[in-house]
Amino acid sequence: MTEKRKGARSVKDIPQEILKQLNQGKMETVNLTEWLAVDQKILLENVLKQNDRFAYFQPVLENINSLKKQTVNTINEAIGTSIFNLTLENNDSEFLQIISHHQSDLIRCWATYTIGKDQSLSISEKLEKIKIFAADQHFGVREICWMAVRSDISENLNASLQILSAWTSDKDENIRRFASESTRPRGVWCAHIEELKQNPELGLQILNPMKSDEAKYVQDSVGNWLNDASKSQPDFVKDLCEKWLDESPTKETRYIVKKALRTIQK
């Protein structure tokens, strides 16, 4: 079982048989080292051959090769975007279903961009479709899925915050975490949301319900959200943290506050 397998600490230590199976899409990666080691071009070629879609390979490869900078994330997006366009042209919803439920985490990552790039969907429809990926058991899919819809969230900020505020009470900590991680004012590997940098109070409908969340995964995200905000609106963050500590003097809130204030208190 994948969850019992321990991944190598460096790429050179990954057994060749494991790397072969990862590149064939026959198993998930178990850590960041493996995730970065997968050759997505080989994986793409294999999954297309396996599903009688090899005609898609050359157009996707051309888009990858045209990238100014090839990283795991840019290749992910290029493949997902290309597959979306090709399946749209060929009325091939079947292949979208195949990659959305594939056993390979990187292939599921591609599927998240087929949602983000679908301009026929409203923001509420995109968020509803991305939810299954936000709850994915794999860390890589959870990270890529919020990036796939980040620009849509930013462009439809008020509607997105209202929708995501309901996610903060979900029983799945991964869903709750998506609500805060996807709306971080500065975020990681993504464009900033200027409106939240200047007016972080807009995010209170997401932050307040999770000020004492039991999951460390969520606590880290909420703390990082506020740390982002502290770089442009430090007084807002300090005042909010004081309020939270007064209202909710729990160890969970104290942990979030410590993380939120780390830049201010340097």
Results as ranks from 00 to 15, higher is better:
H102C: 08
E247W: 06
K266I: 11
E194G: 03
F84D: 01
A191D: 13
D136K: 04
E247C: 04
Q198D: 13
K231T: 12
T168H: 05
L67C: 01
V222K: 02
C109E: 07
F54H: 02
T87H: 04
T81S: 13
E89N: 08
P200A: 02
I18Q: 05
N65M: 02
A134V: 01
P249N: 09
K126G: 08
S100V: 07
N156D: 12
P200W: 01
F84W: 14
V72E: 05
K49H: 12
L96E: 11
N90D: 14
N65H: 11
K216R: 15
N91Q: 15
E45D: 12
Q21G: 01
I64V: 12
K49M: 10
K211V: 07
C190F: 00
K4E: 13
E89G: 05
K211R: 15
V149N: 06
F133I: 08
A159H: 09
P185D: 05
G80D: 02
N158R: 12
F133E: 01
N156T: 07
T29A: 14
W189K: 08
T250Q: 09
T250N: 13
P234D: 11
A215M: 04
E194A: 12
V218N: 01
M27T: 09
P249T: 09
A260H: 05
N224P: 01
L127G: 12
E242R: 14
L157N: 08
V237Q: 03
I130N: 00
N158E: 15
D105K: 00
Y113G: 05
R53E: 00
E195L: 09
N158F: 15
I115L: 10
S120R: 13
K12D: 14
D13S: 14
E34V: 04
A159E: 15
A166Q: 15
D239R: 09
I79K: 05
I123A: 07
T74R: 11
G223I: 03
A135Y: 06
R150G: 04
T2H: 14
V60A: 06
S82R: 02
S169V: 14
L196W: 01
I99L: 07
D239T: 13
I18M: 00
I98W: 07
V30Y: 01
I206Y: 07
E247F: 07
T263W: 10
K4G: 02
S230Y: 04
G7Q: 03
K243V: 07
N73F: 12
H101Q: 12
I144F: 08
L121P: 03
A159F: 01
D239Y: 02
L164S: 00
G116H: 05
I107V: 15
E194Q: 14
D170W: 02
K197P: 03
L106I: 13
W225V: 09
E34I: 01
S248P: 06
L157S: 00
R254Q: 14
I18F: 03
Q97R: 12
F139N: 07
K4P: 05
Y113I: 08
Q50V: 09
N90F: 05
L86C: 09
P59F: 11
I264W: 03
N90K: 13
L202V: 08
E28N: 14
S160R: 04
S82D: 02
F84G: 00
V149P: 02
N90V: 08
K251E: 15
N85I: 06
N199K: 10
W167Q: 10
N90G: 02
V188P: 09
V237T: 00
